[in-house]
């Protein structure tokens, strides 16, 4: 059995590096719908993929958070990207693979992936 002992070592290792992140105004928020509709449609792997990629790429200014149902259940899993001073981009029918593309193209390079957005899906 794995014990909690190891956690002491991890804490000592990362404590120096972890600056207690504050929710500042310049932070980009990536919001994943985690109500029944989102979960049934596959939101759990999407949330995990986004959070893992954001951590892996060291995107300090990005917070991955959850929300409830926003009333667009047929488009779930839904991910909204809220960048300060920009219009909200709503991605629909998300998968872990699409999440990867969004991290690389939108969050890192700053170009929304239009083909996965709500407005593209509604056309």
């Amino acid at each position: 059995m794995k014990s909690l002992e190891e956690l002491n070592a991890i804490r000592n290792k990362v404590r120096a590096r972890v600056d207690l992140r504050s929710e500042d105004e310049n932070q980009t928020r990536v919001v994943v719908g985690m109500a029944t509709c989102g979960i049934a449609a596959g939101a759990r792997p999407v949330l995990n993929a986004l959070a893992e990629l954001v951590a892996e790429k060291g995107l300090k200014n990005v917070a991955v958070v959850q929300t409830g149902c926003i009333g667009l259940c047929r488009f779930e899993p839904i991910v909204e990207v809220l960048e300060p001073g920009k219009e909200t981009v709503t991605y629909v029918h998300m998968t872990a693979d699409k999440a990867k593309e969004i991290v690389e193209t939108h969050l890192i390079k700053g170009q929304p992936v239009i083909k996965y957005t709500l407005s593209a899906a509604e056309k």
């Binding site: 002491n8 991890i10 804490r11 404590r15 207690l20 959070a51 893992e52 951590a55």
Partner: peptide
């Protein structure tokens, strides 16, 4: 144990 180190720190989350 973590004493303020957040749960979503990559190493902690992986652990």
């Amino acid at each position: 144990i973590l004493g303020g180190v957040p749960l979503d720190t990559p190493e902690v989350s992986a652990y």
